[in-house]
Design a protein around this nucleic acid. Structure first.
Lengths: 345, 345
DNA sequence: ACTGGATTTGTAATCGATTGCAAAATTACA
DNA sequence: TGTAATTTTGCAATCGATTACAAATCCAGT
């Protein structure tokens, strides 16, 4: 590769100073149209390309945003990535991926990157914050961070989320409206706020419908297919098996359906199952999964848009934006089995 | 946030020059242990953090690699991301995401970023190259690019891939060994090399098994669930429906299974279906999908490792590494339906 | 004590842009 | 035409590190 042309070369060729070149190329109003053209022509002739590194050093920005997740291979994130990416690139930002694997040390590293200016902002989807990190010092103003998906309590940061509690209620109401009375909930890990919110929604909806929650009706998994299978097995090994399952995410619902099938139970004839998230495969699962859909692309877009606001203003009120969820009724839920039939057996 | 301390501040406090500070902090052998300690102490006291932007400008590196895909929300990429990320971070590189959406202009942009030094290397998974881009000029030596997943012909670049043709053969052999003779193949888009390789494997295996391929037995989809459904419908609307389907990826297999079910055909009793990729849901699909598994995490790791080699050596022989695939037999494939039974109907 | 060679340190240039301030050029107006 | 006001331009500092080269220091051997 031939030597890269720099602003200095253009200056020489165009017969102006480097300052003028810089101004001309950045459309500053401080140059005549004539010189601007002259400089542009020279730049083209020399095949000039801006050195982004140099500029970023000078203007003290990195034009990059960090997207931090706890597990990069969780398919749920995919469309969020897409939404974030679209807005980011439109604004001239590149996307840096961060993957914490739930390791606090790694999480802290990404906060360091933010503090060190390797990124101008961060979209955090891990549900936790590194304790006492300098970036979070309130004295230094609102850090350019948007928390998405998983809420973090009392952190004074901007949030983009869904109303998990309300969505869970809606799921339970759907089952109740089909006549189900024995509805169990496969929770996510309860240390996570997200999981608790969904469970709370389940509890409230059950109370409102006047339904009891037996002690074993809230097994907790870890959002994996395997854990869904295990929780389902536990429920049906006990002596008061439910007729409907509300799983805290689609993967656990898949696991549960697999386990039900293994036991010779039909979905939805014998047991109804509803998930949460609406993964791309849920629609074509068999049976197609009834679930709660989150506007993922939109969540990503919104989060990135908020982040741009914060970066631009450096002084944003910590807002929380709530996105709408939607109940998608497919074929994994159906009428509650007729009590008489069951007792007749 | 208080003013950032720079190397100059440390120099002042430690009573040495900035050059010495730089050397001490980078473990250069050019400083005494005593001064090194002195400098370290001062740096700690002042809470010093290296300005990565400044260093990168000076050393002419960006310590970033670009990971370019054609569609960021394709779940297939997830584990590759993970593998790449693990190796990259271990080597101190950050990951920049690139998403082309099959737009040549966007693809060219990422190549520009590489040329402009915004990234030190690139892992390309799009199956195409922007024509005549400066980075690819052979005169400038081997560019730091590793092509993964999707081959690019005759480009002189390093590749990490699987033997698609052999894997496809293996899939077909599996079906043939179960007694199937009417085996159809749902192809991917044929402009893509990848799709053609898999189809070639299908053809070769069919020939070797002495089986005919009727004209309509190679419908082409676009790797989406919907297209799998459509191709399946076309096959079964015709007058010589197959007893086994080999789909070029799992998603199309899902679509096909959905369509078969809709038509009242059982999998695998009436029709066997085999996919390709082994997505994370395939194992728990119903029926669990027989498929070809690619070592995705490993592909990511290997690609990134190769890229580091190239970046380090600036002079690598363009190698092609072939990763091993594996036939995963689950429950979507079974013995061919008995001919007598069928004709007896 | 002195010389030569090996270590350690410092000075200042450099990476490639942006930008404050001053100087030059242009325009406006009397 | 002369002067003030306004626009354009250029000089040089700056962002914060790294590093070539020179200078200083140290040590060994005579």
């Amino acid at each position: 590769m031939s030597e890269r042309t720099k602003i200095k070369d253009i200056a020489r060729v165009a017969g102006v100073s480097t300052a003028t070149v810089s101004r001309a190329l950045s459309d500053s109003a401080l140059v005549t149209d004539a010189t601007r053209e002259k400089v542009r022509a020279a730049a083209n002739r020399l095949n000039y390309r801006l050195n982004v590194r140099a500029r970023n050093l000078r203007i003290q920005k990195s034009m990059a945003v960090l997207l931090v997740v706890r597990n990069m291979s969780n398919p749920f994130y995919l469309e969020i990535f897409k939404g974030v990416e679209a807005v980011a690139r439109a604004a001239g930002y590149v996307l840096l991926m961060g993957n914490t694997e739930d390791d606090p040390a790694r999480e802290a590293e990404y906060f360091d990157m933010l503090r060190d200016g390797q990124a101008d902002g961060m979209i955090l989807m891990t549900g936790t914050l590194p304790e006492g990190h300098a970036v979070l010092d309130p004295a230094s103003g609102a850090p350019p961070i948007v928390v998405a998906l998983e809420a973090v309590d009392d952190c004074g940061l901007a949030h983009v989320q869904i109303d998990n509690c309300a969505a869970a209620k809606q799921a339970v109401r759907h089952l109740a409206s089909l006549g189900h009375r024995k509805i169990a909930h496969i929770c996510g890990p309860l240390p996570e706020i997200l999981s608790r919110l969904r469970r709370d929604g389940y509890r409230k909806a059950m109370a409102k419908a006047g339904l009891e929650i037996p002690r074993n009706y809230e097994p907790a998994g870890d959002y994996s297919i395997q854990s869904g299978r295990a929780c389902c097995a536990a429920l049906f090994d006990a002596d008061n098996p439910p007729t409907a399952l509300f799983a805290a995410n689609d993967e656990m619902a898949f696991g549960a359906i697999g386990e039900l099938r293994r036991r010779g139970l039909r979905v939805p004839e014998d047991v109804s199952v509803i998930g949460f998230d609406d993964l791309f495969v849920s629609e074509s699962y068999s049976p197609p999964l009834t679930t709660i859909s989150q506007p993922r692309v939109d969540i990503g877009r919104t989060a990135m848009t908020m982040l741009l606001d914060i970066i631009g203003a450096r002084q944003s009120v910590p807002r929380t934006i709530e996105m709408q969820t939607e109940l998608i009724v497919r074929q994994s839920t159906g009428k509650a089995p007729n009590k008489l039939e069951i007792s007749a057996q």
